[in-house]
Design a protein around this nucleic acid. Structure first.
Lengths: 341, 341
DNA sequence: CTGTTAGCGCCTTCAA
DNA sequence: TTGAAGGCGCTAACAG
C-alpha cells in the first residue's frame, strides 16, 4: 500500500482523508456533517478511510471557522476536594453534557489572583460561558467578563457589582429553621460556630440564626459566637472553648459541616449533653449517637440549576433577558433523636 | 470618539486592537508575545488599547496556528461524586495547572459507551493528553487513541491491551496487610465484602485478602465472600447475611469504604462484636466506637502522580520512552482500638 | 452531486 | 523596528 506522504503526523487532517479517498476536502467535510447531498457510494468510501485512519475532525479549527461556540463551559470553584463542590461540578457536568458541552474545571484554592487568572484563561479559550463560585467579594474581573458578553452564572453567592444569573442556597431560611428547633426544645443559651465573616453563605447563616433568636425574644450573647474555623480541628477547639465558659451554651448551631463535626468531637470530648444543630448534611451523621438537627440541601441540584441557567442563557443567543436568581431550598433532617418513634 | 465599525462583536480581535492602535496586527501579536524588538513606545500604545478593549488573545486560534498543544488535559473518571475521584481530579489539576495546562473533566457514570464518546470528543478537541480511570476492561478505544499518538495515562487500574503510563494503588499489599491484622488478632473466620469481580481494584484486593489467609494457613470459606455491593445499603445487607449464618465470621474485611460503612451498620444492628477492617479511609471512622483497621492511601497523590506522568510524557516531545508504572503505597490506620495506650 | 474560493484569528517567514 | 503574505484545519458561499 504505497503511502502518500509522511507517516508520523500526529493526527490526520481532512485533506489526508480526502486524498486517500480521491475526493475533495469539502466532500469529506460534508460526509462528516451527514450532508444528504453526497452519493451514498462516495460517502461510504470516505467513511471507510475515516475509520481506517482513525480520523477525528479538529473541533478547535471547526469552532474557529464557525464563529464562536467552542462547546466548552468553564467551571471555577474554590476547592474541588470539598464534596460540596465536587457534587456541584457533577451537577453542572450532567446538565451541560446533555447539551453537548464539556466542562473545563479550574480550582482556585480560595485564591483571588488564581481566580482572576483562571477566568482570563477561560475567556481566552473562548468558553461559551462560565459558572463560578467566587472566592471573594471582589468580583470586578467577573463584572468585566460579563460586560464583554461572556455569559456568567454565579453559584453559591450572589453577583457583586454586576448583574448575572445566580443560584443560591436558602442559607438564611435553613439556618433560621434549624435554630428554631433548638429554641423550641427549650434552649436559650445557643452558641454559633461559622465561616469567616466575609463569606456570603456564612453571613447569611449567621443572620438566620440571629433572627431566630430575635423572633424568640432570646438575647444574643456575643461571646457565644465563633467565626472563622475552616477545618474540623479548629472548629473543635472553638467549640471546646465555648463549652468551657463559666456559663456555657446548652446548644450549638454550626453553619457548615466542618464546624458541625468539630463541635461533635468537642461535645463528645467534654462529655456534656449539649444539643447540636447544623447546616450541610454529611455521611455517618446518623451514627454519632447524639440528637442532631441538620439543614440539608442538594448540592448536585445546585450544580444542575447553575448548568440550566447557563444553558438557557446560551440558548437565548445572548439576548439580555433579565437575570434570574434560583434559590435551592433546604430540608430539615433529624438524626438520632430519641424523641422520635 | 468615532468608532471604526460594529459594536456588538462579542470579542475584539487582534485586528481590532491593531486598527485602534494604528499599527499592524503583527505588531500587536509581537507585543503580546513580549517580543523585545518592538519600540517601547509602540508597545505601550498597544497595551493601552488591549486594556481598554479588554482584549484576550484567542488561544484556540493560536494553538491551531502553532500546530498542536491546546494546553488542555482531558480527565475521564467514572464518578466525580465519589470523593476518591474528586481528590484525584484535584491532584491532577494541581500538577498540570503548574505547567500552564487546564483540565477538562468528563464523567462517565461507569458507562463504557459514555467513556468512548468522551475520549473521542477529547481527541477531537486536540487535548494534549488524557488521564483516564477506565470504566471497564474493554479499553480498545484507549488503545486506539494511544496508537494514534495521544499520550494516555491510566489511573487506578493498569492499561489492558496496550502500553501506557499508569498509576496504581498498592491494592494487593494494603489488603493483605490489613487482613493479616485480623489474622494476628486471632480471627480465622473472616468474611470479605467487595466490588464486583471485573473491577481491577476489587480483584486485587480480594487476591491480597486470599493470600493473607493462605499465608496463615487458614482455609477460605467461599460462603464468606460477597462481591458486587456498590452502595452502603447493599453492603449492609450483604454483611447482615454473613452475620446471620449458622457459623458467622468473627471478622469482616471490606475492600472499599462503601462496604466498610455498610458492614459497620450491619454489625451495629446485629449487636455482635465482629471485628472490622477495610480499604479506603473515610471521615469519622474514628468515632464509630469499634476497633477498625484501615488500609489508607492518598488519592490526591494518585492524581498528582498521574499528572506528573502525563506532564513528563508531554515534555519528552512524544518520545516513546518506555511506559512507566507508579504504585502509590498504603498505610495502615487503626481506629478506636482499645488495645492502644 | 462535487469542487473551488475565501477566510475564521493567529503567527512564522520573509521583505522593507 | 515594522509590515505583507501565506497557511494551520475547517466550512459557508458560490460555482459547475
Amino acid at each position: 500500500m504505497p503511502g502518500t506522504r509522511g507517516a508520523k503526523d500526529p493526527q490526520p487532517t481532512l485533506r489526508d482523508v480526502a486524498q486517500r479517498a480521491h475526493v475533495s476536502a469539502m466532500t469529506v467535510s460534508r460526509v462528516l456533517r451527514d450532508d444528504p447531498k453526497v452519493l451514498p457510494d462516495t460517502a461510504a468510501r470516505v467513511r471507510a478511510v475515516v475509520a481506517e485512519l482513525g480520523y477525528h475532525r479538529n473541533e478547535m479549527a471547526r469552532s474557529l471557522r464557525l464563529g464562536s461556540s467552542t462547546g466548552l463551559v468553564g467551571l471555577v470553584v474554590t476547592n474541588l476536594a470539598n464534596p460540596f463542590y465536587s457534587r456541584l461540578a457533577l451537577g453542572v457536568d450532567a446538565v451541560v453534557a446533555g447539551h453537548g458541552l464539556k466542562t473545563v474545571i479550574g480550582n482556585t484554592g480560595h485564591d483571588l489572583d488564581s481566580e482572576r487568572g483562571l477566568v482570563a484563561d477561560l475567556i481566552a479559550r473562548r468558553v461559551d460561558g462560565i459558572i463560578v463560585v467566587p472566592a471573594d467579594d471582589d468580583q470586578r474581573h467577573l463584572a468585566a467578563a460579563a460586560g464583554k458578553g461572556v455569559p456568567i452564572v454565579v453559584a453559591s453567592r450572589p453577583p457583586n457589582g454586576f448583574t448575572a444569573d445566580c443560584v443560591l442556597v436558602d442559607d438564611y431560611g435553613g439556618s433560621r429553621t434549624a435554630t428554631r428547633q433548638l429554641l423550641d426544645a427549650g434552649h436559650s443559651r445557643i452558641g454559633f460556630l461559622g465561616s469567616p465573616p466575609p463569606v456570603y453563605t456564612g453571613a447569611e447563616r449567621l443572620r438566620g440564626f440571629t433572627d431566630a433568636l430575635v423572633d424568640a425574644g432570646v438575647e444574643r450573647e456575643p461571646g457565644y459566637v465563633r467565626l472563622g474555623q475552616q477545618q474540623t480541628s479548629e472548629a473543635s477547639r472553638a467549640a471546646a472553648e465555648l463549652l468551657a465558659l463559666p456559663e456555657p451554651p446548652t446548644a450549638l448551631f454550626c453553619s457548615n459541616n466542618r464546624n458541625t463535626i468539630g463541635a461533635f468531637r468537642a461535645i463528645r470530648g467534654a462529655g456534656t449533653t449539649t444539643a447540636l444543630a447544623g447546616f450541610d448534611d454529611f455521611e455517618l451523621a446518623d451514627v454519632l449517637g447524639l440528637p442532631l438537627v441538620i439543614a440539608a440541601y442538594d448540592s448536585d441540584e445546585l450544580g444542575r440549576e447553575a448548568g440550566r441557567l447557563l444553558v438557557d442563557r446560551l440558548g437565548e443567543a445572548r439576548a439580555r433577558g433579565t437575570a434570574r436568581r434560583v434559590v435551592v431550598p433546604t430540608t430539615l433532617v433529624r438524626y438520632g433523636d430519641p424523641g422520635e418513634p
